[in-house]
Every structure is written in structure tokens, then in C-alpha cells.
Design a protein around this nucleic acid. Structure first.
Lengths: 205, 205
DNA sequence: TAGATTGTTAATCGATTAACAATC
DNA sequence: TAGATTGTTAATCGATTAACAATC
């Protein structure tokens, strides 16, 4: 398969997330435009890029479409868990690990790391917490693929580097730092602070 | 001033955030490329779009540049606080309000809302918590401009609509839903779950 | 000065939109 | 069938990159 452009992949990933809780049997590009806010011609283009040709003149079968997108993007099925860890167990990290946000998802947090030993001793979770020194052994052993980075900004790059060295393939970055990740490691920035800045930049100009 | 394209504004907002903690007096586009990961020609283009012409052949004065970007984008200075609220005080919302992530920033959380009365009674914070019914009166009174949305997906659109009606101009969306916000209200999506999906989509294709 | 960097213009590249024959 | 929607191609649009004279 020819590779799908970044912008299309993001839209398809969003579409897949929304289709996962879609109830009807069939769906048209017009309905998908309503759900995602993406122009319907572009929706069809993206679907076509994903290699799915199953649409007919009254729309797509939602389940078939979802399966095709998941296959094209390598998205996990709900039942095949992908293992994740949280690096940085300050208030934000601790909350992310306890808030159950991933409960219904294919992502499962199986470890937490912090460089401050007292954090890993004071906190409790459904999964083990380790001092950061254990990262390089735990990540491969526990087959951890992705990390959620919630350390202080100052430690962000150092921690990211260690996560990558340990074998992590993607990082959800809650810090305000731009991470220098090597080719092949995906980083998604979700800093609430940068998000607010972006909002200001859009509202006031 | 001619309007700055979306992509440029985002890069400039990021650059501003990084410049805020930059220590040297002068900075070149090459250094900014290192910090942001953005090609240096594009950095200069963005700066030019922001209307700043103060660069000389050994770089820009960092402070001048930062001021200019802030002015062009309407970004707040560190000391001029912008008031925010959190809607949805589940574990994630509660953590966001307590974790101090905005402490050093121009954004200040001044209210929390939840539709479940017991949440607003059980939790405590440095600012008042209200039942969601009070939103329409509290938001304008407290001069709240932006909201952090951390409710359950099912309530996301309803809550967003109420926030907008109450006068909020931007929403940082932690839910997995796409919000239907009217023209003029900015939404930034920072769903950790969608971020992980995007990472999968990038790593596996 | 020589070397480095800016600011801007033109060239390239890629992404979105428009349009429409084919299909059900 | 008539009407609606898909899948795809060509046209448009906008964003990034290359290039370089001007500047310090």
C-alpha cells in the first residue's frame, strides 16, 4: 500500500474513534462530515487512500469501513491490548493513571515510573510503580509500546530519551517541551498549556 | 495586519512558549530550528508574517521577538491573567484543577463546574466549585474566557454548548468527542486517547 | 573585510476542492 | 426508474522550500 499522508491519517484515526461508537449499520460521507467536521469530498478521498472501495450508492457499511481503517492504519482492535506506561507521577501523572480514561480502550497502563522514590512508594495503582532506574529493564519485559510523559518540563527531554532507549515507540507528551525524538518514534503533544496558548492565538488574531 | 495562517500561528505560539524560558539575549533562526524542529526558512517566514522586522545579520533579540509574537497573536503576558474554568470534575478534571500546571502561566483557574452536586461538595480547591446550573451566571461574572472540558464523552457536546452560551471563547477539549463549536469559538483537542490512536496510526503505517 | 544571517521573492510541492461518470 | 452517493480525476489553492541580494 502507498503510504497515507499525515493529515489523512489523523482524520482517519479520528473517524475510526467515532465509528467505534456509531450504532447504525450504514453511514454516508455526509453523516461523517457532520461527525468529524471534515468536508465530505475529503472524507471519501481519505477512505479511498485507506484502500477501502466498499462504498455503494447509499453509503458505507460502518463496521466494514471501521475494520478497513483500522487495518490500514494499524489501529488496535478493542480486545487486543497495547501496553503503555506513565512516566512522571506528579499530580497530573497520578491522576492520568487513576482516572480510568483508558478503561474502555485498547490501551492498558501496566507500569508507572518516577525518579523520586517516595512517589512510587506513596502512590498506589492497579499496576506496579517503579523508580525510573528500572525503566530500561521493565519496558521491554512488560512489552510496553507507548508512554505517557507527565514529568516536569525540565526533565522532559531526558525522560523521553530514556523511554526511547528502553524501546518505546510513541510518546504522548503532556509537557510543554518539544521532544527531540528520533525517526520512527511518534510524539503527540497534548500540553494543556500550549493548547490554551493556541486558543489565545486563534481567538485574538 | 493581514491575517496569519493557522499553521504559522501554531508554530509562533509554540515558539513564544519556548522563548519565554530562553535565557540568552540573542537568538538565530538556526537555534530556533533546534528548539522547535521547524525548518529555519519557515521560522523566518513565520516571524515575517507576524510583522517583526527586527532581525539583523547575527540574529534576533529574543525579548523583542517574543514581545512581537505575543502582540501579533494576542498572547497574554505572564502577569496579565486570563481566567479559566474547568467543566467536569471527575478524576481527570479534579487532577487538572489541583495539579498546578497553570501556576507559572498567565492562565488562572477561577471556577469548577460539575453537574453532579456531590462532586462540587466533596472536592475542594483554591477557587469555588459550582453545580453546572450556575454556569450561565458565574462565567460572565467571573470574566471567564476559556474552559477546560473534562466531562464524560456523552456529556461533551451538551456541556460545550452551555459553555459557549455562557460566553466562553475557547475550549481545551479533553474528551474524545468532536465538539460542534460555532464560528469564533476556538477548540483545541487534547484527548489522550485520540493521541494514542494517532501514535498507532503513525507507527504502524 | 569575510562570514553569517536576515527578509523576501519565486519555485516547488502537497493537500483540498470541484466536478462528474459510474453505480446502486 | 429517479435520486443519491461513491470513487476518481483534474483544477485550485495554500503552504513549504530554495535561493539570494541586502545587511551587519
Amino acid at each position: 500500500m502507498e503510504k497515507i499522508p499525515e493529515a489523512s491519517r489523523r482524520r482517519l484515526a479520528l473517524l475510526a474513534a467515532l465509528l467505534a461508537s456509531y450504532k447504525e449499520e450504514k453511514i454516508t460521507s455526509i453523516q461523517m462530515q457532520k461527525m468529524t467536521g471534515v468536508e465530505r469530498a475529503l472524507i471519501r478521498k481519505d477512505i479511498s487512500l485507506a484502500g477501502f472501495k466498499g462504498g455503494v450508492s447509499n453509503g458505507y457499511k460502518a463496521q466494514e469501513l471501521l475494520d478497513a481503517i483500522r487495518a490500514a492504519l494499524g489501529l488496535p482492535l478493542p480486545e487486543e491490548k497495547r501496553f503503555c506506561c506513565i512516566a512522571g507521577l506528579g499530580k497530573l501523572g497520578a491522576a492520568l493513571m487513576q482516572c480510568g480514561i483508558f478503561d474502555e480502550s485498547p490501551f492498558k497502563i501496566v507500569a508507572g515510573f518516577d525518579s523520586r522514590v517516595n512517589r512510587t512508594e506513596v502512590l498506589s495503582a492497579d499496576f506496579p510503580l517503579y523508580p525510573a532506574a528500572k525503566m530500561e529493564t521493565v519496558v521491554p519485559e512488560a512489552k510496553i509500546e507507548f508512554a505517557i510523559l507527565a514529568v516536569e518540563d525540565e526533565q522532559a527531554n531526558m525522560m523521553a530519551e530514556r523511554l526511547v532507549k528502553s524501546g518505546v515507540k510513541g510518546i504522548v507528551n503532556f509537557t510543554g517541551q518539544v521532544l527531540e525524538a528520533p525517526e520512527g518514534v511518534a510524539v503527540e503533544n497534548v500540553s494543556p498549556l500550549l493548547a490554551l496558548n493556541n486558543i489565545c492565538a486563534r481567538v485574538n488574531s
